[in-house]
Simulated assay, not measured.
Amino acid sequence: MTESMTSRHHENANDLRDRITTGCIKPGARLPSEAALADRYRVSTVTLRRALAVIQGEGLIEKIHGKGNFVRRPLRKIMYVGGWGTLDPWTAADVALHVTVRRATVQARGHLATLLKLPAGSPLAEFVCVSHTGDAPHGLARVYIPRDLAPAGVLDQQTLCREAVTRFAVLCAPPAVVRETVRARPPTPEEASTLRTHSTAPILAITRVATDATGRVVEAAFLAFPGDRVDAVFTTHAMTYERQTRA
């Protein structure tokens, strides 16, 4: 990339950013086509796409396949409560929140079999849940339960089941221990497409493993949230240790 090309695409990004942040282009508005923008700025479509990638990476626009580039509406952040393995009740109670669920039976393989402490090939119930506020996706959960622990009615229209799905909570019986591993990373192509986020924008990825009182792993879940749409809160409790004195 030449220095002039680098300068031009940053100039184009700066102009589009200014037009969006000052309200000249309103939230939800569709940008002109890439060809029209390239013609307006008198640059190639390659340079124009680099400019769009800059402001998309900043979260100002989103590209919807087959429709074009749109100015993103301000998104309310959700809260994930660590230790309970769930979205906070206020988020779950939002009337605009809805969750789609896809169910399947799969086999335990590789890392998943290791997490669940099951032989490879063991049958699992898989639940793929995507939460939306309005038309904006803000969370993706893949939940795996040993098939013998997931009765057919686990997601029937019962109040507790609906609440568990809405809050991304543990779907099986209340566990004795929930272990969560949290990290920031780039999204996979599937996550970027489902959550409508840029491939370079970090997501908050949580691996959750639930264990019952006997030590059996009863559920493993992989949660993904766009980093700009979630806060994760973890509360620790101080423990007091008493020294034992020798007689």
Results as ranks from 00 to 15, higher is better:
residue 223 L to Y: 14
residue 66 G to R: 06
residue 68 G to D: 02
residue 42 R to H: 09
residue 73 R to A: 12
residue 123 P to Y: 08
residue 54 V to D: 04
residue 77 K to V: 11
residue 198 H to G: 05
residue 72 R to M: 03
residue 185 R to V: 11
residue 19 R to F: 01
residue 230 V to P: 10
residue 111 H to T: 13
residue 48 L to R: 04
residue 82 G to S: 04
residue 136 A to G: 09
residue 84 W to A: 11
residue 246 R to L: 15
residue 118 L to W: 07
residue 203 I to G: 07
residue 162 R to Q: 15
residue 36 A to C: 01
residue 195 L to M: 12
residue 37 L to I: 00
residue 9 H to I: 01
residue 81 V to T: 14
residue 109 R to C: 00
residue 95 V to H: 14
residue 95 V to F: 02
residue 137 P to A: 13
residue 6 T to E: 13
residue 241 Y to S: 06
residue 42 R to V: 06
residue 206 I to Q: 10
residue 137 P to S: 08
residue 61 I to P: 02
residue 35 A to M: 06
residue 214 T to F: 05
residue 168 F to K: 02
residue 131 S to N: 14
residue 128 V to C: 05
residue 86 T to I: 01
residue 223 L to F: 13
residue 101 V to A: 11
residue 163 E to S: 14
residue 39 D to A: 11
residue 39 D to H: 11
residue 145 I to S: 00
residue 107 Q to A: 10
residue 224 A to S: 15
residue 62 E to V: 06
residue 86 T to A: 14
residue 170 V to T: 13
residue 33 S to H: 06
residue 161 C to T: 02
residue 62 E to H: 03
residue 183 R to G: 10
residue 224 A to P: 03
residue 247 A to F: 13
residue 62 E to W: 09
residue 81 V to Y: 07
residue 70 F to N: 05
residue 140 L to D: 03
residue 105 T to N: 05
residue 27 P to C: 00
residue 208 R to Q: 11
residue 84 W to C: 13
residue 216 R to A: 09
residue 140 L to I: 04
residue 101 V to T: 10
residue 167 R to M: 05
residue 178 V to H: 05
residue 60 L to A: 01
residue 114 T to H: 14
residue 232 A to D: 01
residue 10 H to N: 08
residue 156 D to E: 05
residue 146 P to E: 12
